[in-house]
């Protein structure tokens, strides 16, 4: 029935919006976390952290814009987040960046799982791929092995 179809469509979009909200929350944390990462790196390495932060801001703003088009309020950024471990040196900063990228990867995979719109999957896929490419570099800097993952975010 047409009404059933409309209900299902609305339910699917609600699930997609909820997943996008989680992704926005994860990118808020990543943007904040990269401030910590950059502060702990040597000046020569801060450009990489700055680029990553900018990338997360960009994709976060695109997700927020998508939610705004649907009159959905995105989750706000927290003023501060508890760090999973002290970040006192460059290797700690790289390890924190790995946590940040792995966190957003999980959120974007969730979006892929829940998305009803192909355009949303394209956004999630781009964000996920970029996060994993950055994560590979940070895992190497943090001395993690292996540096690649078969199934990032899953």
């Amino acid at each position: 029935m047409a009404d059933d179809g409309a209900d299902e469509s609305a339910q699917d979009l609600a699930a997609e919006n909820a997943a996008l909200g989680l992704a926005v929350a994860a990118t808020h944390a990543a943007v904040w976390g990269y401030g910590v990462v950059g502060a702990a790196l040597e000046p020569g390495g801060r450009g990489t952290a700055g680029s990553a932060e900018a990338a997360h801001r960009d994709v976060r703003d695109r997700a927020i814009a998508l939610l705004a088009e649907r009159s959905v309020e995105p989750p706000p950024a927290e003023g501060a987040y508890a760090l999973p471990f002290p970040v006192l040196a460059a290797v700690d900063a790289a390890a924190l960046a790995v946590v940040l990228e792995d966190g957003v990867s999980a959120a974007w995979v969730r979006v892929l799982d829940q998305a009803a719109e192909p355009g949303t999957r394209e956004l999630a896929l781009e964000a996920l791929s970029d996060a994993e490419v950055r994560a590979v570099g940070w895992r190497a800097a943090a001395g993690r092995t292996p540096v690649t993952r078969a199934l990032p975010g899953l």
């Binding site: 699930a15 927290e78 966190g103 957003v104 999980a106 959120a107 799982d113």
Partner: peptide, 27 residues
């Protein structure tokens, strides 16, 4: 000096997703 009221959302999100599973669709 870091606030303890909120876990770092990136890792928390990952944990929540693991708990929920990625196949738990509402429909």
């Amino acid at each position: 000096g870091f606030s303890r009221r909120t876990l770092l959302a990136a890792s928390a999100t990952g944990l929540a997703l693991l708990a929920a599973g990625c196949t738990s669709s509402p429909t």
